[in-house]
Write a protein that binds this DNA or RNA. Structure first.
Lengths: 226, 226
DNA sequence: GACATGATTGGAACAACGTTCCAATCAATA
DNA sequence: TATTGATTGGAACGTTGTTCCAATCATGTC
């Protein structure tokens, strides 16, 4: 009897899925820099060579991890009365996910040709189609939305790189933005009037609202072109 | 007589400026990965320790290099009949610069709090003010433009990472996009209708036009909110 | 004009990383 | 049971950013 079901070797057999899940746990707990093949091997009680049998290289691993997360967001059925509503809801899903896993933002903006990004582009693009945008401008409209999203995704990842601790996330963030604002306020008023004005609202601003405002701006622009 | 002008030690004294210029040359010639302290030290005929006396760390060096480039773009006086025109021209200046030095795009999107980005935000923000946007939405409008720009900047850097050669830049790019499009066309038509449609125009599309279309979309959105 | 002092240099040394290599081990087949 | 190929674990390699330190230079003081 040829049993195709793989019997466990030791505890649980190593597999790409198990490796990716362990990588995600590591990334979520301690941040982007914490994912090393040594740490991962220790976490899985194996060696780095064994991991390399299932995974091509570190980028392959990160891409698989990011795709696993993004696939989860896309699976949530998005409801909305209009294509605009669907895009807004979908975008907020992206935001919440990237806020919860900032390393995903870094990975997406670092290699935008990976499948996770294609997934997102498909979701966004379909709604752009539904919006009634002429075909030859659908490409520009959808990629504009994606570029904006990826741009902010990279920023959140950069922010998280400054404080890998997850303890008082919101508290350290405020302190960090306060420090940035203080530095901006010390700039020459003649040279940097706008930045100095913006510095006043920077520490108190809401990332989520800022993100949605950007999406709405692009949506309003699309509606105008339509 | 206390001469404050530093006399050259050997050929030319090492200085942050000279180091940054050498770094830029290295980055332009051979790409992001080519900038190592060893290569830089060899290029300057010195040791890595000497470089570290003038520069805090690699990020400091990259930030200074990126700022040097961005300062050059911002120095070009931007003329335009309307704030929209100025923003368009300024954005195209960013595009051309980042296209010529893709590593700048990577650096800007990787650490968006550095001074180079503040410079850009000031330039964009001032025109948003001139556009007559109410003060409390100037922040969202200006950062939306910046996020879009940084998002695409990161993408160009990622693209350049695939072919560090500068020989037939445009030829390899076309081949690369062709390969991406071919992969997209093999996706399940039921799952990825939009991406498959976009794949047809992907290899022939013009980056610069796509970039400008995105800017125009956001500008149209801003005008609507104004 | 020697000397002391602090700024500056160059290169060796260190720790950490991604990756490769390979002998050892396991599960399934002959 | 012997053999084969898939899979494992960990040592080893080359490269990186960074640190360290002895040597060197320019300059102000006696």
């Amino acid at each position: 009897m040829t049993n195709r079901i793989r019997t466990e070797r030791r505890r649980e057999a190593l597999s790409k899925t198990r490796i990716v899940e362990a990588a995600i746990e590591l990334l979520d707990r301690a941040g982007e820099d914490a994912l090393t093949f040594r740490a991962l091997a220790a976490h899985l009680a194996t060696g780095s060579g064994a991991i390399y049998w299932h995974v091509a290289d570190k980028n392959d691993l990160l891409a698989a991890a990011a795709d696993h997360i993004i696939a989860g967001v896309m699976a949530d059925a998005v409801r909305g009365s209009s294509p605009q509503d669907v895009i807004r809801t979908m975008a907020l899903g992206f935001f919440d996910t990237i806020h919860a896993h900032p390393w995903v933002g870094g990975q997406l903006s670092r290699s935008p040709w990976q499948y996770a990004v294609v997934r997102m582009l498909e979701g966004v693009g379909r709604q752009v189609q539904a919006l009634g945008v002429p075909e030859h401008t659908q490409f520009n409209a959808a990629t504009a939305l994606m570029s904006f999203i990826l741009g902010l995704a990279g920023q959140y990842a950069a922010g998280a790189r400054h404080f890998p601790r997850d303890a008082d996330r919101t508290e350290t963030r405020k302190a960090f933005l306060g420090a940035v604002a203080a530095k901006w306020l010390q700039l020459d008023p003649a040279e940097h009037p706008f930045v100095r004005q913006v510095a006043k609202v920077l520490p108190e601003h809401d990332d989520r609202e800022q993100f949605l405002a950007g999406i709405d701006l692009i949506l309003a622009g699309i509606e105008r072109i339509r």
